[in-house]
Amino acid sequence: MRIASAAVLAPVAIYLVYRGGWAFTGLVMLAAVLMTYEWARLVRGSHLNADYIIHAVTAIVSIGLAGADKPLLGLLAALAGVMLALVVVILRGQGRRWPMIGFPYILLPCIAIVWLRSGGEWGMLTLYWLLAVVWATDIMAFVAGRTIGGPKLAPRFSPAKTWSGLLGGMAGAAVAGAATSLILDLDVAVLLALISGGIAVIAQIGDIAESALKRYAHVKDSSHLIPGHGGVLDRVDGLIFAAVAAALAALIGVLTEQGQGIGLGVFVV
């Protein structure tokens, strides 16, 4: 079931990254709404409440603005959603505010991914590179952790993760980065391998963060939306952290005028 689900979902994601535009933005919107449902389930124990509705509507609006080439307005819309949800929490007299973290946790990566894809061909290649790095990280971390084992990486939050798994994931990501450079004939294999290794660390942090959230909620999976895989958050926990890191790097390149446009081109100037 796990392999069958991946065989269906992965080609769809790869194709929509290629298409870009509103087809890809729609995919990200759908993913954001589903992740919002899972977040509400984890931190509240239910999803049919005002918080979920505000969060879901904010996700659609903010990602839609980013897809319309207005990422700054998208960020402002996300901030407005946070403020509105916080007001609702205060008016209810609820003491716990930390569930508001769900807004940046979900919306920032989604806006970042849509913004990266808006960079034309380089944006498309950036997302393909990012997917390859994250997938390589997950696969090699699993293989190394299972075959080598050893000291635990973060036993309090994710008992199954090991230092050998982290190093294996970094190695897999580095190979994916170097391969990307060779395939695109960029002649920066070493640089992109180092960057990809760093992205692997960030992706693993995202994985551990989601594991900590599930331990808080006393559940094994964020949901059962994807047969054999659990929930959407379970599948993209590393990607959402990695996407923000890649977008920040691209933004720095744009602001310092060291890159042509946005995306992978920033890394290879």
Rank of each mutant, 00 (worst) to 15 (best):
40 A>H: 02
93 G>C: 06
144 A>Q: 02
217 A>M: 02
197 G>P: 07
241 F>R: 02
216 Y>C: 05
269 V>E: 08
123 G>E: 05
263 G>C: 06
119 G>N: 08
258 Q>K: 10
181 S>F: 03
176 A>S: 12
165 G>K: 12
243 A>P: 04
51 D>W: 15
39 W>Q: 06
122 W>Q: 05
121 E>L: 15
57 V>A: 14
166 L>G: 05
31 A>K: 02
248 L>R: 04
195 I>D: 01
92 R>S: 10
16 L>K: 06
145 G>W: 08
224 H>M: 13
260 Q>A: 02
239 L>C: 06
179 A>H: 05
219 V>F: 11
121 E>V: 12
201 V>I: 14
205 I>K: 04
38 E>S: 09
156 R>G: 12
7 A>Q: 01
13 A>S: 09
111 I>Y: 06
35 M>G: 04
95 G>C: 12
18 Y>N: 13
230 G>F: 09
66 A>L: 09
248 L>S: 06
11 P>N: 11
97 R>M: 10
188 V>P: 02
23 A>Y: 03
178 A>T: 01
213 L>V: 14
95 G>F: 11
105 Y>M: 13
90 I>M: 15
134 V>H: 11
160 A>M: 08
110 C>K: 08
166 L>Q: 00
43 V>H: 06
252 I>F: 10
170 M>D: 05
152 K>L: 10
141 A>I: 07
131 L>W: 13
258 Q>T: 00
259 G>R: 03
9 L>H: 05
99 P>D: 14
185 D>A: 02
34 L>R: 00
11 P>L: 13
186 L>H: 04
206 G>A: 11
213 L>Q: 02
146 R>T: 12
265 G>A: 05
209 A>E: 05
198 G>T: 07
49 N>A: 00
138 D>K: 01
78 A>K: 00
96 R>W: 04
243 A>Y: 03
214 K>P: 03
153 L>H: 12
187 D>T: 04
178 A>V: 00
126 T>P: 01
82 V>E: 08
32 A>H: 03
21 G>V: 08
98 W>M: 08
240 I>R: 12
9 L>F: 04
71 P>E: 09
80 A>P: 05
262 I>G: 15
253 G>F: 08
237 D>L: 10
3 I>M: 14
1 M>K: 13
105 Y>N: 13
210 E>P: 03
